[in-house]
């Protein structure tokens, strides 16, 4: 690891101020950033730790939305009775990330700000039509994720919370890489009163929606409504874990399973 300075932010505002320093970087759980720094792929001059920023933690449920603070860990989301009651699919998704020790440190804000193309949370945010609350504004999930490791966040802008609207039914099913538990393909389906949203992670260069399946499922909420071919192999990733053709096939299979599992 290259050497760096370290500071603990007292709150989100303090963190944004500290981030003004050139080449400063923010660390949430550090489950991606620290391994990246070890490989010398990242070289921050200052590491701003958010762990002490209490204003970034917590889970709250209101009538229309479930709000999760950016520094809430995967384990906290997975075990929260509030999350389980409001959106069981989200709690189950959190329980499937990495391993128990990663879930004890990794955070929802860190995951979506990093926007790993195989991460799980971006699929939930996109399918549930979440709103990403930052230190500067509110960004709809549809405009937040910009492709591989890229988001709409500005340099000194921090995710403070994520607001999830309540779905009538939802489920997330993934085909995990057996070693890392990252999604080779993960599909989140969400049925609302007036629309259906389907988001796919792991398969392409970034999380994406599948309008053809959304329309078909809005007409008929059934696994049979998922037609293979709506997701093209040409748009898929291809690597040692799965070919593009296999990923395209898995998208339809995971989508069908998600619809069947949704409650």
């Amino acid at each position: 690891m290259y050497s760096f300075d370290y500071a603990r932010a007292k709150n989100a505002k303090d963190a944004a101020k500290l981030l003004a320093k050139k080449e400063a970087k923010v660390v949430a759980g550090g489950m991606t950033l620290l391994p990246t720094m070890k490989q010398r792929l990242a070289k921050p001059s200052l590491l701003v730790d958010l762990a002490a920023s209490k204003d970034l933690k917590g889970i709250k449920k209101a009538a229309k939305a479930l709000t999760i603070g950016a520094m809430t860990t995967h384990a906290e989301v997975a075990h929260s009775s509030v999350v389980k009651g409001a959106c069981a699919a989200l709690a189950a998704l959190a329980e499937g990330i990495g391993d128990p020790q990663v879930r004890n440190r990794g955070t929802i804000g860190g995951s979506i700000a990093n926007n790993d193309p195989a991460a799980d949370y971006p699929a939930a945010c996109l399918a549930l039509g979440a709103t990403i609350v930052t230190t500067q504004r509110k960004i709809p999930a549809d405009k937040f994720f910009k492709g591989m490791f890229e988001t709409a966040l500005k340099r000194n802008e921090l995710v403070t919370a994520i607001q999830f609207p309540m779905a009538e039914k939802a489920a997330y099913i993934k085909f995990p890489n057996p070693a890392s538990r990252y999604a080779i393909v993960g599909v989140f389906v969400a049925k609302f009163k007036d629309e259906v949203r389907v988001a796919v992670t792991g398969a392409g260069p970034g999380v994406f929606r599948v309008p053809a399946w959304e329309e078909a499922l809005a007409k008929k909420w059934s696994a049979d409504a998922i037609a293979a071919g709506a997701v093209k192999a040409a748009d898929m990733n291809s690597d040692i874990h799965a070919t593009a053709e296999y990923r395209a096939h898995l998208c339809a299979v995971m989508a069908k399973r998600a619809v069947a599992a949704a409650k």
């Binding site: 489950m31 590491l47 762990a51 020790q101």
Partner: peptide, 11 residues
């Protein structure tokens, strides 16, 4: 439980 190789001492 956490992995002590993926946490900084200062944290």
């Amino acid at each position: 439980s956490v992995k002590a190789c993926t946490m900084l001492a200062v944290q």
